[in-house]
Nucleic acid binder design. Structure first.
Lengths: 228, 228
DNA sequence: TGGGAAACCTGACATATGTCATAGATTCTG
DNA sequence: CAGAATCTATGACATATGTCAGGTTTCCCA
């Protein structure tokens, strides 16, 4: 099993601020786990006794609302650490983490990081910096949700997916989401999402092939977001 | 001028994790400022060279969206520290902070806390804990925004105002917001907000007197939120 | 204290969005 | 490989919400 010390993934998250010894301790206590597409890493309300470091694959962080729909709050990928917030606040998980494709994640028991969190200010500050960033993003999502139309948010989602996960050689978005998940990200009904996809396609902004989606006229999508 | 060491407000925020000496330094460098109703403490995009500790009054943290409407992301009151996120991330402010009523705030230059932030893990962890809490709240707002109707969010807003700021002896909410600000919190048009207020009043859920609003039938509002 | 600005309120209307029903496409599995 | 199950797609419709326009009340300060 690979050691955290050598893990490249680590460079992307707060673990890089750990000392050699701290990292060794984490490495010794961690366990690696496969998570198949559709399986959950943890569920809303669950008590977490550690955090999960994503080595591969993509997870959706979502919350079930009263009306039975899953609102996706964030997509997390390689290098991100899940469950941090809950462990730090000492609360149960506020969101569920479900694998969108096959994943590989490392579980790090909280005992292995709590100590560092109280002793190594560099590490704590790194975690803080990441959380500050997440908070800003969350604030931006709030504004988008309340002030933009579904069509605009849909266009934004496509651009986000392109920028974050890239596209394959045929020009389709690399991260393939079900229509339901797209609706979940955008915060709308599945039917509305599908309808807007059809419309964008008809207008030539995007192309589709099965569930895959490709951006054709980025300019047009951007104009739409800007309000034209 | 009062000293931070003796400030009760401090008990409510992360400053309480500072050592005597650290606190002294903060106290020596801080300046206190009056902010009149409607004035801004800082604006979106502005570079902050410190944080603001609220001693009195309430501030709205909002962001102007493309369509020209102000979305209120959060209300901040006595004890809360504003601008933390920006200073920590080293970014310009993501939100504007505007006084809802007359306020008294202390400005603490970032030099006075940056050092502590890198040296005193207790303090850093305290800040982290607060931010973790804010992040959870932001996530919840996202879900509310996308999955609840305006009517439900309006009802929630009233209950939130009651629970957070209380009510006066006549049963009106202590924190008086303009209809525009209510619309901003809920994320809707002013007219829609007013219409729903009228409806709630007609149904006897709330009462109004000028711009003041009082909750009459809390049960009904809760039912509405739950989806009945 | 009176006049004007700002805030509040209401109606009429257009439209965006959700819901329900149903059909076609895709994929999963025995 | 057939049939089931799941996902995608589309139409018809109801409704929630935004917009515009006009009125009324409240507030402020000269």
């Amino acid at each position: 099993m690979s050691r955290c010390e050598n893990c490249i993934i680590r460079q992307f998250n707060s673990l890089r601020a750990m000392s050699k010894e701290e990292l060794k301790k984490v490495s010794d206590s961690k366990t690696t786990r496969e998570v198949k597409k559709g399986e959950s890493i943890f569920e809303e309300g669950e008590r977490l006794n550690g955090v999960f470091c994503v080595r591969n694959g993509v997870s959706k962080l979502s919350k079930l609302s009263a009306n039975g729909k899953d609102q996706i709050v964030k997509l997390a990928t390689k290098g991100e650490v899940l469950g941090q917030r809950s462990v730090i606040a000492g609360e149960s998980a506020n969101l569920s983490a479900i694998a969108i494709n096959n994943m590989e994640v490392c579980f790090i028991p909280k005992e292995s990081i709590e100590n560092t969190l109280h002793k190594n200010p560099d590490f704590t500050f790194e975690v803080l910096r990441h959380m500050a960033h997440d908070l800003k993003e969350a604030d931006d999502v709030i504004v988008n949700m309340s002030q933009k139309t579904v069509k605009q948010r849909m266009a934004e989602a496509f651009l986000y997916l392109k920028n974050t996960y890239g596209e394959d050689k045929d020009g389709f978005l690399s991260l393939v989401l079900s229509r339901e998940d797209i609706a979940g990200v955008v915060g709308t009904a599945v039917e509305s999402a599908i309808r807007i996809i059809s419309e964008f396609k008809k207008k030539g902004y995007i192309k589709t092939s099965g569930k895959r989606i490709g951006i054709v006229e980025e300019r047009k999508l951007k104009d739409l977001i800007a309000g034209f």
